[in-house]
């Protein structure tokens, strides 16, 4: 059951990501991105991270992507024009990607024993466990992150503010 769900949503995620790159209209790309994010949420759920899955749907698919589509609608962005692409990308792109992939694969395979293993559907991290962790052991990073986000908000307000 878990394995079937993993394959279905993994495939959906990949298909969405490919569609995101191949579609020519920005709104279709944005919608594919929503599909990718929602399938990622299901994958988190399969790994037992309930809260993370819900937050992924609420924050990313529900709020941030709404703003993306909002901007696309307001700008009334048309179809993108395809160019031939830069020569550099053709020459260096594929070998570069292949090299990166093989490097990652090599690292994963050679250090296989050192990684902790998580099996799909093995355990569930409840929200209360997660929050206890966040507010005791990880309190400092948590608060620092929130300050970081606050700075970003203040920066956005400062940039958008009209001078009187």
């Amino acid at each position: 059951m878990h394995l079937a769900l993993f394959f279905i949503f993994g495939a959906l995620c990949l298909a969405g990501a490919l569609n995101l790159l191949l579609q020519r209209h920005p709104i279709n790309s944005a919608l594919s991105l929503i599909v990718v994010m929602s399938s990622l949420a299901v994958l988190y759920l399969l790994l037992g991270a309930e809260f993370l899955a819900a937050a992924q749907v609420i924050v990313y698919s529900g709020a941030i992507m709404v703003l993306f589509t909002f901007v696309i609608m307001l700008l009334n962005a048309g179809k993108e024009e395809r160019t031939r692409g830069s020569k550099l990308a053709y020459i260096a792109g594929f070998p570069g990607a292949a090299a990166l992939l093989s490097l990652l694969t090599f690292m994963f395979l050679s250090h296989q024993g050192e990684f902790a293993r998580a099996r799909i559907g093995e355990y569930v991290v409840t929200t209360s466990e997660l929050s206890r962790m966040l507010f005791t052991d990880l309190l400092l990073p948590f608060e620092v992150t929130s300050v970081l986000i606050l700075i970003a908000i203040l920066g956005a307000v400062a940039l958008a503010r009209k001078e009187h």
Partner: peptide, 13 residues
Amino acid sequence: NIGLLIVLGVTSI
């Protein structure tokens, strides 16, 4: 376990 969050998530979609 996360019924309330699911309601919120589905509404936001």
